[in-house]
Amino acid sequence: MMWDGVREVACDESGSDGENLTDGNTDVFAHASVLLPAESAAGCVQEIRNRIRSPAEEYKAGHLLREKHRAVLEWVLSPAGPLYGHARVDLTDKAFFVVDRALDLLLGDAAGADALYGTGREAFGADGWRRFLRAANRLLRARSDAEPVDPVDAFFAHVEELRRVEVPEPAAAVLERLAGSRERAEAYRARVTAGPPLIPALNPLLPAILRTAALWSAPRTAVRLVHDRQNMLTPDRVDWLLRTARQRGVALDGVELVHSRLDLRVQLADFLAGVARKLASDELNGCGDPVLTALLRPYVGSSSVWGDAPSWARLGPLPDGRGRGTRAGSGARLPC
């Protein structure tokens, strides 16, 4: 296919814990993208350095998130800042992503993810909901740690535990369907035990990259992603990304892996990803900063995978379509 032009977009992520989505260090995964010429990115990074005045060789989002640099952070995100209109961030609520993927793999669709997630923590209690999320995570992850209980047995034991609780009909119907999906669960475990799949079910990076490519594509304009180096982005997986994007009508021209130190556009994406992950996590946990959240809103992609409607409403306009939850339902809260 011939394109009239190619947009080169720099990308980085924050909050990656591999397939460990329920017991990792973060509850939000963020994938940021920046469309700026290299010269403009260099000027932006230099201005940030001039304002922060840290001797660090490479700046990270943590520098901007320090309270003493609050004014710099507000400037970076503001309409007068260097990223406004040139950057976006795709957010993934990890707990919701686990529920979404479990229903998709075990039931053939994830239409009930909103209902189950929305009921979750309130109906089953924080501990009961957390145990279910952990069991679902263990069932779906490709690498299963040596534990005394089989992941299939553990998951369905938790499903039965939740079914004993009286919940609204949409969630009850989802649990009923899950209870009958043991055969599919055993077949899935047999496949991943025989050999790790090329595309892990629970790693949020690859679907986030596809959404990012779709976000920046335009008629007769392709997208080339310049991405910070990631062990997940092997040549085979990059080929899969290119094929899958084109199957979805997204003109992804290529994925180039670089080190953020060597491409200041990627360093800016790193800034935005780290900042967005922290601010989104704070909103998810009920302790967001209204000023910073308002500044972040224009950057948040509407295709983000988010399950908590109150916090999403503060992060950005509630989008239509699958993958958006209805109310608070995450597992254990993280400290702000």
Rank of each mutant, 00 (worst) to 15 (best):
R121N: 14
R261L: 12
D109E: 15
F96P: 02
E19N: 08
L242Q: 06
T326G: 11
L202V: 12
R189Q: 13
W216N: 02
A38S: 13
C287L: 05
G24W: 05
P151A: 07
A115G: 08
L21V: 13
V275Q: 01
Y84A: 15
G331V: 03
G301D: 14
M1L: 12
L83T: 10
R177Y: 00
L284S: 02
L272V: 07
D320T: 14
D253A: 15
P151W: 00
Y84D: 13
L36Q: 08
E8D: 07
F97N: 03
L77Q: 04
I48L: 15
D114G: 14
L178M: 04
A208T: 12
V255K: 08
A313L: 11
D236W: 05
S330L: 09
D104M: 04
F29T: 03
V28M: 05
P204W: 11
A309R: 15
D114I: 00
A222G: 15
G331N: 02
D239G: 03
K60N: 10
G128Q: 02
A42W: 01
R191M: 13
L103A: 04
D320F: 09
A313R: 14
C336A: 05
D253S: 14
L175H: 09
W306K: 03
E39I: 02
L252V: 10
L215V: 09
G112F: 11
D23H: 13
L21S: 10
Q267M: 15
E176M: 10
A218S: 13
V98G: 05
S33R: 01
T212R: 10
V72T: 13
T326Y: 01
T293K: 11
D114M: 06
Y188I: 04
R163Q: 14
A41I: 11
R191Y: 09
F97R: 06
S330V: 06
Y84T: 08
L315P: 12
Y59K: 01
V192P: 01
A38V: 11
G321L: 04
L215W: 12
R131A: 15
L225K: 08
R7S: 12
C336W: 00
P148E: 05
R134Y: 01
E169H: 05
F155D: 01
V174P: 07
L139R: 09
L140K: 09
E283N: 03
P170G: 06
N25Q: 11
A273P: 08
A113N: 03
A328Y: 13
A172K: 12
Q247E: 15
V250Y: 06
L64N: 07
L175T: 09
T244V: 10
G254W: 06
R237E: 03
E183K: 09
D27E: 05
A123M: 09
Y84G: 08
P82V: 09
